[in-house]
Design a protein around this nucleic acid. Structure first.
Lengths: 217, 217
DNA sequence: TAGATTGTTAATCGATTAACAATC
DNA sequence: TAGATTGTTAATCGATTAACAATC
């Protein structure tokens, strides 16, 4: 219940990977797991994994490792996966639709309560079990449900007006999938998603591995 | 043509944001832009922006700032946006379809040459202008076109077998959108996409802002 | 000229890695 | 017991921030 021990952002990026590795091991009957085994799976240094796990408050036993089930709980707790977060999404095109159906959110306790769109052909329909509502109902629903996180997956040219609407609807965190550079007041956090940047990073890692000559030929 | 000056990963994450801000300014008639203006738009420290731009090799003028058009070229160059990269995608469900149509890739020089699926209902169709091919043709196409980057957007339970197929098809970089923890040989880089982790980071930033009392009340 | 903004060098900070004692 | 693995303390590394001289 007390998440006071703050976990660093890089650690947050790695913890879910540990979770997946442990989960896989547990499904194969493993009861205890050591940092070196987790590190091996992910090509990381064992000491880095140990440091990350330390941040979750998990305790292991020398010679034995960590109790896998307990460790998963600790990771989930540190990531805030316990508490339920309601979020909303505006723009139910192909990307928005995919996000409405994204499986990974539920594990982490995120629930997209509804999708919003201006297209009358979509309004009233259901996508991946999520109701599509008209944007005109956005503010009311957000205020009523005290929703603080919103996803923008509209065409880029509408992103700013959606961001403005979100701000006046009490949203404090905006996850922007468009390439528009949003102007918002300082008390609203904008998280800019850039898939192309992710790809650039992947390619950079590939290139640096080639240079290091780690590859086979 | 010479990308030898290596740009750090955190800088790669920020450069596209600078690009978008500059692009927006240019469209409003701006010719020169200073680091403080860019920083202001993104709530960053000017010195951080200056350091990042330094890595691109761009030169500015005291009192004047940077020539906007030139700066955009430098950023694009540093991100490797000049060169064309062909990539492939396996799993044309809702997320895969969205990625096939993702606008942001083309700016960065990425082109998904085809989508692959096992569903006969999808094979032969075209999604967002991309042809859907049977997985049986995957290896042949990748080898023929010397493709090195592949996206996995299948159900999680098929991710490992797709990863194996990619490895034997010459793919060196895998972008995994499923939650499966992939086992690959060490000369294949796996970039694990975790949208839920991104959301956790956003929420963490929101909370830390609340604590700092930067918000309005 | 005066002053804003760059470019550069140094200081700080935090994350990663290393070393090693504790312990099961 | 012997040895593997944790927990902890210290060293290193790189990224961010600060300070300030150079310059347009």
């Amino acid at each position: 219940m007390n998440n006071s021990k703050s976990v660093s952002i890089e650690t947050i990026r790695r913890l879910p990977k540990y979770y997946d590795v442990i989960d896989m091991a547990v499904k194969q009957g493993v009861k205890n797991i050591s940092t070196s085994v987790i590190a091996e799976h992910l090509n990381l240094e064992p000491i880095l994994v140990r440091k990350d796990l330390e941040q979750t408050g998990a305790k292991g036993r020398p010679r034995v490792g960590f109790v896998a089930a307990e460790l998963m709980d600790r990771i989930a707790g540190s990531l805030g996966w316990g508490s339920l977060n309601n979020i909303v999404l505006v723009g139910c095109g192909s990307l928005g639709s995919a996000l409405l159906g994204y499986k990974g959110f539920s594990r982490a306790g995120f629930d997209i309560v509804a999708g919003f769109d201006v297209d009358k052909g979509k309004i009233g329909r259901t996508i991946h079990g999520k109701k599509i509502l008209p944007v005109s109902k956005f503010k009311d629903l957000c205020l009523r449900m005290h929703i603080e996180v919103g996803i923008i997956s509209t065409p880029a040219e509408h992103a700013q007006s959606v961001a403005d609407l979100m701000a006046e609807s009490g949203i404090k965190g905006v996850w922007n999938f468009t390439s528009a550079a949003l102007k918002t007041s300082k008390d609203v956090i904008v998280h800019q998603e850039d898939m192309a940047a992710s790809l650039v990073i992947l390619i950079k890692k590939m290139n640096s591995m080639k240079k290091e000559g780690k590859g086979q030929e």
